[in-house]
Design a binder for these strands. Structure first.
Lengths: 315, 315
DNA sequence: CCTCTGCGCGCTCAGATGAGCAGGAGGGGT
DNA sequence: ACCCCTCCTGCTCATCTGAGCGCGCAGAGG
């Protein structure tokens, strides 16, 4: 690699020319005139300078974003946006806050006044809402019913309201549980004016933020909220991940379940119609679910941490 | 410096584009097509990437050559070649060997079969001779008479012979002391056939290697070899440096001395006629003398170490 | 001695690039 | 509501740049 140039004078000349070109921004023609060389000679010297490692170009970000992992994730799964934070991930709460802040910045960056924002409930979405700067009057639509999480004060409705107040836009909310015991109740709830009105805005949603869960104990709030027979039924159907209530197999295919008829929330088809769905997953254990969500094509943006991103990228 | 880009998505996009451009070598047009941007936008993104420090280009040599100091020395004094070694300089002997090797490489690099090489005596020149690779038949001319240095086995003649045997060219040598007690003796010596024959080749010399001494005790072999009244006389004339017997004031002007009439060696005019004279000074104490030698315009090449180079460059 | 071969050099020409400019969107002041 | 100011964007055109080509020189071999 190194040691290419013939002798010390060559080394010094090469380094000087490299400096003029790369650091002083002179053109090769100027440099050729200055040193009495042809511009081709200068070009060849610069080539050897790069090949020999005398000129080193590195791309490195000072902040907490791992640009390399981000770009790889983005390329690998054809995403619109991928943000990987290089954050210590031992403490789930602080990790969630970090990701929430980054997601808030991302959302603020990509959203336009023409957008309609959809929000599904997830703890990371709640963290994002807290960090959100003022948005340009974007309407906010609630995508899922409420889930009772012990110790969590924010409900779906609260988060949507919070974001809408940050944006100054309308908040389309409804009060209903995420899951109910039977399909008839679900149908009835969906026909309630409040719920129907909110869901009518669903086709207009252009950007959404959702959570991702691995279908296993402790890794999906929805999973843990369901009775054992429902959990097992979905396992038998090959469910690997849920994206705010949309169930996916390990290779990212949507799985049709009877449970869906008993849920008040967005369907796979409706989610697919949303141009960009952003997820904020964390925890290496969820790698399989995250990969499923990315393979599904439902998800267009992801905000996560380095360990999980690496795990997802591994074969 | 950092933190220029608007948001995380912008950071990732910028980093990805920078990677494509600087590391993958894609053109801006290709990148623009790939990301659906105009090539101008790509160019601007790349500009911000460099300004923000996300792309860092550094020029650094692995070996012992300090390319930065070398180039500064070269530019500052309009030299043809400057080689500054980043070598520990606590041990004079090993430092001399290092410089000698580097000078040998430099000489081998810049010399052509058409060149005629002149050699003045100096310890560093002797070290160079030892490290010299085969040269393309260059004739070698002795420039100065011999000096008796206690403990030094090599005389001017030996060094010239050694180099000539490495080059396979003719060795134009003579046996005569550098200084004699009176002008008449010097004139007589110069007219000796052997001496005259060697000096006849002087105008043909195209490259030479010489030593530099500071006119003070212990920093110039010539100074130390002269009686006290001669030393003092030169000090009174403002002599600061000697370049293989050519005396210079602190600002690099040649100083005419009566001593010159009593010396068998090259004159200032003859030295100025040589296209490139290379010196191999070492020791920070000689900084003033080295600066004088570089200001004089007599010297076109220098091989030295970082500490001395820095000292010379300081105002 | 001549010829062959490989290498370094600079040329041509098409494509890439940069500087400067004009048009348009957004934001704030009156 | 209106205007001005600024920033952002993409255009034109002149210049710069890279890929490929042919020349000439040095060294090997006949």
């Amino acid at each position: 690699m190194a040691g290419e140039p013939g002798g010390p004078a060559q080394v010094v000349l090469t380094a000087t020319i490299a400096r003029r070109y790369y650091l002083d921004g002179r053109s090769k023609v100027e440099i050729a005139d200055e040193f009495g060389l042809s511009r081709f000679k200068v070009a060849r010297i610069l080539d050897t300078a790069r090949q020999s490692g005398l000129v080193r170009i590195e791309i490195r970000h000072e902040g907490e974003i791992d640009v390399d992992l981000s770009a790889r994730l983005r390329d690998r799964f054809g995403l619109q946006h991928a943000i990987v934070l290089d954050t210590p991930d031992d403490d789930a709460a602080s990790l969630r806050d970090h990701l929430g802040r980054a997601a808030a910045q991302l959302l603020a960056e990509v959203i336009t006044p023409q957008d309609v924002l959809g929000l599904a409930w997830a703890r990371a979405v709640s963290a994002m809402a807290r960090a959100l700067p003022p948005l340009p009057g974007t309407p906010v639509v609630q995508l899922t019913g409420a889930m009772s999480l012990p110790g969590g004060p924010d409900t779906s409705v609260d988060v949507v309201r919070e974001v809408a107040s940050a944006s100054g836009g309308a908040a389309h909310v409804f009060y209903a549980p995420f899951t109910v015991p039977d399909a008839a109740t679900a149908r009835a709830l969906r026909q309630q004016p409040e719920v129907a009105r909110a869901f009518a805005h669903l086709p207009a949603v252009t950007k959404a933020v959702a959570g991702v869960g691995l279908w296993a104990p402790g890794l999906s709030v929805l999973h843990d909220a369901l009775p054992e027979d429902d959990r097992a039924a979905l396992v038998r159907l090959g469910v690997c991940a849920d994206v705010s209530g949309v169930f996916l197999s390990a290779d990212g295919e949507p799985v049709t379940t009877q449970l869906s008829e008993r849920m008040i929330g967005i369907s796979a088809e409706e989610m697919r119609a949303i141009p960009e769905v952003i997820t904020i997953p964390y925890g290496v254990a969820k790698a399989l679910a995250v990969r499923a969500s990315l393979l599904s094509g439902l998800v267009g943006g992801i905000v996560t941490h380095a360990a999980l991103a690496s795990a997802v990228l591994e074969e």
